[in-house]
């Protein structure tokens, strides 16, 4: 194995002190006699030493208890289910209602849009769900400002992600 292959392979373990004694001896030996390997190590070590010193973000203790509460509340309040539970539910007898109810709701909104004129109908057709559409309309919220909000980006992204996006 050429010396620089060995150094490239082992440099990260060298920097983090994970080399075996045998590898450490060989590593030091190569570094002592090969200027190219030495210069590679020096550069990697200079960057590692700087990056390694980047400190943890300062976060007040109060934040952590709030975070814990928020996560647990999301799990307890909503109907978060495991993937197996979702699969079991999908096979259940009420499955048909999952299809019928949104269809009925869409039809209802269509009727409302016909009776109220063009404006509501256009938004109802483009919005993600009937409930969101009503909220956006009634609050007169700027859709552009909603899109800029990271929470909305995250929520809409999660909603739009096909299964498997996050490795499942």
């Amino acid at each position: 194995m050429p010396c620089h292959h060995f150094i490239e392979l082992k440099v990260d373990d060298y920097l983090t002190g994970r080399l075996t004694p045998d590898d450490k001896r060989l590593f030091d030996d190569i570094i002592g006699r090969c200027p190219d390997c030495r210069s590679f190590l020096e550069e990697q070590r200079a960057a590692y030493d700087l990056i390694h010193e980047v400190s943890r973000p300062e976060t007040p203790e109060l934040y952590w208890s709030g975070l814990e509460k928020s996560i647990l509340a999301r799990i307890e309040s909503s109907d978060i289910k495991t993937n197996n539970e979702i699969a079991a539910d999908d096979a259940g007898p009420h499955r048909i209602w999952n299809a019928v109810i949104p269809l009925a709701a869409s039809f209802l909104i269509f009727l409302v849009s016909l009776s109220m004129g063009d404006k509501v109908g256009k938004v109802a057709g483009s919005g993600p769900t009937a409930a969101n559409t009503v909220e956006i309309n009634s609050a007169q919220t700027s859709y552009a400002s909603l899109i800029e909000s990271p929470e909305i980006i995250a929520i809409s992204y999660i909603a739009a992600s096909p299964p498997g996006t996050f490795g499942f």
């Binding site: 928020s70 996560i71 999301r74 978060i80 495991t82």
Partner: peptide, 10 residues
């Protein structure tokens, strides 16, 4: 938050 919610689901 999302990491913990997702691991709970999985």
């Amino acid at each position: 938050q999302e990491a913990f919610i997702r691991i709970y689901k999985n």
